[in-house]
Amino acid sequence: MEGRTQSATATSSLVVGNIIWWMVMIAAIGVGATHIKSCPVQPFIPIYLSVLGAASIISLILTYSQRISESGIIYILISICMSFLHIFTFCWIIAGSYWVYTEYPPSYTPATARYCQKTTFQFAFVLTTLVWVMMALSFCCGGCYIVFACCCGTLSARHRLSPNRNTFYGGTDGAQGGAAGDV
């Protein structure tokens, strides 16, 4: 991590966020695997949880591995694998959203036709909703950051290009207050 300086707050927030995400994804695998036959209304919901958890954990492991080898063929291979994994995970979240949201609300009584085990369905519903909220926030914050960076860059460039009251365009001697680029 040479050349990368991070504040202690940012680093600790990243570590805590990673730990929480690891725990949630391990729980997703556990809930999905434990209740694999407990959701007859939509049998793909437990599978969705297990696969989403496994794909996220593999993605985290690849991210950590990529940080270790910052150059070379291993870095390129890990980047390619991560790209495919991210595309797969995004498509899997779309499919899981369809499976979860089309069955809302299921029956939590085992004898009924629309039965799904309560923990499994609610975990899938909350996890899917949180993933969409996090993606929306990421895109909004990223978009705001890009707009802010572009505006600041434009303001900075405008400040350098516009003359102040002591300069004048086309001035040839220092008596006029200097060149147009001086601020």
Results as ranks from 00 to 15, higher is better:
residue 168 F to R: 11
residue 35 H to D: 05
residue 150 C to W: 00
residue 86 H to Y: 11
residue 179 A to W: 02
residue 147 V to E: 03
residue 85 L to N: 09
residue 36 I to H: 06
residue 54 A to Y: 01
residue 129 T to W: 12
residue 137 L to D: 13
residue 152 C to E: 02
residue 122 Q to A: 10
residue 156 S to T: 02
residue 68 I to P: 03
residue 165 R to F: 09
residue 122 Q to E: 14
residue 89 T to Q: 07
residue 152 C to I: 01
residue 29 I to V: 07
residue 130 L to N: 09
residue 154 T to A: 05
residue 94 I to G: 13
residue 153 G to T: 03
residue 85 L to P: 07
residue 161 L to A: 00
residue 27 A to G: 08
residue 23 M to S: 10
residue 119 T to P: 03
residue 160 R to P: 00
residue 74 I to W: 10
residue 137 L to G: 10
residue 121 F to I: 11
residue 42 Q to I: 00
residue 138 S to F: 12
residue 136 A to Q: 01
residue 68 I to M: 08
residue 22 W to R: 07
residue 61 I to Y: 10
residue 181 G to M: 05
residue 42 Q to W: 00
residue 113 A to F: 14
residue 6 Q to H: 06
residue 3 G to N: 06
residue 65 S to P: 06
residue 165 R to H: 12
residue 24 V to S: 01
residue 135 M to R: 05
residue 68 I to A: 09
residue 80 I to G: 05
residue 181 G to I: 00
residue 48 Y to R: 08
residue 55 A to P: 07
residue 26 I to Q: 03
residue 4 R to T: 11
residue 69 S to P: 04
residue 50 S to V: 06
residue 146 I to F: 11
residue 30 G to Q: 02
residue 106 P to Y: 12
residue 125 F to H: 08
residue 88 F to E: 03
residue 107 S to L: 13
residue 134 M to R: 12
residue 93 I to H: 10
residue 64 Y to W: 11
residue 146 I to L: 09
residue 93 I to A: 13
residue 38 S to I: 01
residue 160 R to F: 04
residue 100 V to L: 15
residue 154 T to P: 00
residue 103 E to R: 11
residue 101 Y to H: 11
residue 85 L to I: 12
residue 131 V to H: 04
residue 62 L to S: 07
residue 120 T to R: 00
residue 150 C to N: 06
residue 166 N to V: 07
residue 78 I to G: 04
residue 142 G to T: 06
residue 16 V to G: 03
residue 94 I to Y: 07
